[in-house]
Amino acid sequence: MACSSIVWAGSLTGTWSGTVSNGRETERVVLRFSSNDNFINNYGELTHVGQVQRSAPPGGGVITNKVLLLNKSRNGLQVVQEVSFEKTSNGYLHQDYARVGHDIKLTPQGLQVQISARNSSYTSDVGSAAGGGNGMVVATGVLRKSR
């Protein structure tokens, strides 16, 4: 009998950890998934496109997370989030933006992930603004189920 690599629903459930690398730097990553195979970020479970999550971090400001893409398949998940942070201090408005994508596939070796991020940062007052984009970073790796 031939072996099958069919992945059944619920196989992403739990916590996965490991490292990803962009070729220059390596970073430890932990990804979590609900019992429905939904991606869980720092603010909660992502369930649908257009979902908005907001939080007020210690030290002030507002973080807004919006789900732009959420595509589930039998063996993986694609998620794109737009994250912004805004804070005022001493008459200046500081804004950070990031578009973060996760391309996640379950393989016999583990959870294959590609994380891409494009960041930009701005500081402004009434008459001027400074800042700009910091480019795209793409990191890949294979995670193992830890819980």
Rank of each mutant, 00 (worst) to 15 (best):
A2Q: 13
C3Y: 13
S4Y: 04
S4P: 11
S5G: 12
I6T: 13
V7L: 03
V7Y: 09
A9F: 12
G10D: 04
S11V: 09
T13L: 04
T13H: 09
W16K: 01
W16E: 00
S17N: 01
S17D: 02
G18M: 09
G18V: 02
T19H: 02
V20N: 06
N22P: 01
E25R: 10
T26K: 06
E27L: 08
L31E: 07
L31R: 10
R32S: 10
S34C: 01
S35T: 11
D37K: 02
D37Q: 09
F39H: 09
I40V: 12
N41E: 10
N41T: 06
Y43K: 00
Y43G: 07
Y43A: 07
E45C: 01
L46D: 05
L46T: 11
L46Q: 01
L46A: 02
H48Q: 13
Q51P: 05
Q51M: 04
Q51E: 12
Q51C: 00
R54W: 03
R54V: 10
A56S: 14
A56M: 14
P57L: 05
P57G: 00
P58I: 05
P58W: 00
G59Q: 04
G60M: 03
G60N: 03
V62I: 13
I63R: 02
I63S: 03
I63C: 08
N65Q: 07
N65F: 09
K66G: 10
V67N: 10
L69G: 01
L69Q: 12
L70P: 08
L70V: 02
N71I: 13
N71Y: 13
K72N: 09
S73D: 02
S73T: 14
R74P: 15
L77N: 08
L77E: 08
V79M: 12
V79T: 07
V80E: 10
V80Q: 12
Q81P: 01
E82T: 00
E82Y: 03
V83Y: 00
F85S: 08
E86D: 09
T88S: 05
S89Y: 06
N90W: 03
Y92N: 03
H94I: 14
D96R: 02
A98D: 13
A98R: 07
V100R: 05
D103L: 09
K105T: 13
K105C: 07
T107C: 10
T107Y: 04
Q109V: 05
G110R: 02
G110F: 10
L111S: 02
L111V: 00
Q112A: 14
Q112T: 02
V113L: 10
S116W: 04
A117H: 03
R118I: 15
S120D: 06
Y122E: 11
T123A: 15
T123W: 11
T123R: 15
S124E: 08
S124C: 03
D125E: 10
V126C: 12
G127S: 15
G127T: 15
A130I: 12
A130G: 14
G131V: 08
G132C: 06
G132S: 05
G133K: 04
N134K: 13
N134R: 14
G135V: 02
G135R: 02
M136R: 15
M136F: 05
M136S: 15
G141Y: 08
V142A: 12
L143W: 04
K145T: 11
K145I: 07
